[in-house]
Simulated assay, not measured.
Amino acid sequence: MSDLKKEAESLHKAATALRKVSHHTIKPLHEFKAESDDLGALGKLGSLLGATEDIREGMHTLAKLTKQLDEEWQAEAKLMGDVSDAFDLLDILLAAAAQAKKG
C-alpha cells in the first residue's frame, strides 16, 4: 500500500470521526440553551447579586461559541475528506503513470 493511500485512509477516518461530533453535542447544547432561559435555579442568590442577566448572557455566548466550533469542525471534516479523495486520485494517477512506463 502506498504512502498516499495510507494517508488518504487516515484522513478519511479522521474526517468521519469529526463529522460525528455534532451527533454527541446537539442534545446537550439544546438543553444548555434551554436552561439559560430558565435561571430560576439561581433563586435568591441570582437576584441578590443581580447576576441573572449576566449569567444568561454568558450562557447564550457559550452556546453560540459551541455552535460555531461545531461548524468549524464540520468544515475541517469536509476539507479532510476532500484531501483524502485527492490523495486517492493522485495515488491512482501515479500507479497508472508507473504502469504506462513499464508497458
Rank of each mutant, 00 (worst) to 15 (best):
H30V: 07
L42H: 14
A41D: 15
I92A: 00
K67D: 14
E53A: 14
A97L: 01
H30L: 10
M80F: 13
H24V: 05
K27Q: 09
R56W: 03
E9P: 01
M80H: 06
S84T: 06
A17C: 09
L4Q: 05
D88M: 02
K78Q: 11
Q68R: 12
E53M: 07
K102H: 02
L79W: 10
E9N: 12
G50K: 13
E72D: 15
G43I: 02
A41R: 14
E57M: 12
E9K: 07
L48P: 04
S36I: 02
T52R: 10
L89K: 11
T66F: 01
L62P: 06
K78L: 13
H30T: 13
K67Q: 15
A34F: 05
Q68E: 08
Q99C: 00
A17V: 09
K13A: 10
A86I: 03
G40L: 09
L93F: 00
L94P: 00
T25G: 04
G58Q: 05
K44Q: 14
E9T: 04
E35Y: 01
T25A: 05
S10Y: 11
A97M: 00
A14D: 03
K20S: 09
A95H: 00
S10Q: 14
F32K: 01
E9M: 07
L42F: 13
A63F: 07
G58A: 06
L4I: 08
S36G: 14
P28C: 13
A86C: 04
G43E: 00
H24S: 11
A8Y: 00
S2Q: 02
K6Y: 06
L42C: 15
D3S: 09
A41C: 15
D54K: 09
L90I: 03
H23K: 14
L48E: 05
A95I: 01
A75D: 12
T61Y: 08
K67T: 12
K64S: 14
L89Y: 07
A97C: 06
L65F: 05
G40H: 11
S22D: 10
I26C: 11
E31I: 10
R56H: 03
D38W: 12
H30E: 08
T25I: 03
D38C: 04
K44W: 15
G81S: 11
E71Y: 07
K13W: 07
E53W: 08
L79V: 12
I55L: 08
D82M: 11
L18H: 06
K101N: 04
S36L: 13
W73N: 07
L4P: 02
A17N: 10
L69Q: 15
H60E: 04
E57G: 08
P28A: 12
L93M: 05
A63S: 13
E57I: 13
G46M: 04
D38H: 09
L90D: 00
L39C: 02
D3N: 08
L65C: 04
E71I: 03
A15K: 01
L39D: 00
L48A: 14
L11G: 01
M80G: 03
F87W: 07
H60I: 13
L49Q: 15
D70K: 04
E76K: 10
M1L: 09
A96I: 06
H24K: 13
K33T: 03
E53Y: 10
A100Q: 00
K101I: 02
S47Q: 14
G43T: 03
H23Y: 15
K6W: 09
D54L: 04
L18V: 07
Q74L: 04
S10D: 10
D85R: 01
T16W: 07
D91W: 01
